[in-house]
């Protein structure tokens, strides 16, 4: 039981880290530009596809991952220049609709280029083993690497935001956009940088999970909505909130799915518990979100409503 718990704890953390990489870009874009981007999940999906393709071309997953980063950065840059830039001062409804249109366009484009059938990529031999946990349990090295890479990225992000000039501008922009602009900071350029950077983080997340998940055109959607939940829980614009929210959502979702039925079995008969657990587990995150919102409408770390 404790072994299973440890295993699921690690799985939950890995899922949470993945959500953080996606939510970080989203929350920055939300917080600083007040912009809703439904197409963010698609970029994560494209990241995974590019990683597969680049890995096949170069014969190495590591090289594929490295090539994916500038590629998704470029895609983010292009989208910002062509579409998003025109939407910043529009109502949220327009932003939602235009990016929804982009979701349709990009998803379909991916299906045209790569086909609708799921793809997979072989993980590097070096990382394909597993390490022993307590007792007979073992844990795949690759998943540990994902957790580690995510934590390093989070730490790097924290350093950039709190210790660098661009991070300072970023925080200032989130607090008062007009004032920053009046002080002579080119806010447009800042927006473009943030956007492209957020896209790269999403692409990185997609490339990281390509070896452990199947790569298909639908993979971005469920993650996108969970990333929304993460941001709402953490508070819009707060990277710290996104980190806490992502881990919370990842853990609650993973542990709820495996332990929900076990806990329910204590109070009802096994078959009913299994059924109820299966139905309730996927809803847990949303119930968590509702509870947190009821207590704190601006989210855990949010300043604004």
């Amino acid at each position: 039981m404790t072994n299973l718990f440890l295993l699921q704890l690690l799985n939950g953390m890995q899922f949470g880290i993945l959500l953080f990489l996606i939510a970080a870009g989203l929350t920055l874009v939300f917080g600083i530009m007040d912009f809703v981007n439904l197409a963010h999940g698609v970029i994560y999906m494209i990241g995974a596809y590019l990683a597969v393709t680049f890995a096949q071309m170069t014969g190495s997953y590591g090289l594929g991952l490295l090539l994916t980063l500038p590629a998704t950065l470029l895609i983010g840059l292009l989208l910002e220049l062509l579409v998003f830039r025109k939407l910043y001062d529009r109502p949220h409804l327009d932003q939602v609709l235009a990016t929804f249109g982009l979701v349709m366009v990009l998803t379909e484009a991916v299906e045209i280029i790569w086909g609708a059938a799921p793809l997979s990529v072989r993980m590097p031999d070096l990382l394909s083993g597993s390490v022993p946990l307590v007792g007979p349990m073992r844990y795949p090295v690759f998943r540990l690497v994902v957790i580690g890479a995510g934590l390093v990225t989070a730490a790097g992000l924290w350093l950039v935001i709190t210790r660098t000039r661009i991070g300072m501008r970023l925080r200032a922009g989130a607090t008062n956009r007009a004032m920053v602009s009046a002080l002579g900071v080119d806010i447009r350029k800042l927006f473009t940088i943030i956007f492209a950077f957020g896209a790269m983080l999403a692409g990185f997340a997609g490339a990281m999970v390509a070896p452990i998940l199947t790569v298909d055109p639908g993979m971005g959607e469920s993650v996108l909505i969970l990333a929304f939940v993460v941001i709402v829980i953490g508070g819009i614009g707060s990277v710290k909130g996104a980190f806490a929210g992502a881990l919370l959502v990842g853990l609650v979702d993973t542990l709820g799915r495996s332990f929900g039925p076990i806990i329910l079995r204590a109070v009802m008969e096994p078959s009913a518990a299994a059924q109820a657990g299966r139905v309730l587990a996927p809803m847990l995150v949303y119930i968590l979100m509702a509870a947190i919102l009821a207590a704190r409408p601006a989210g855990l770390f949010g300043a604004r409503t």
Partner: peptide
């Protein structure tokens, strides 16, 4: 959907 999305945008 590609065309529909494009029209929407």
């Amino acid at each position: 959907p590609l065309l529909f999305g494009l029209i929407l945008v």
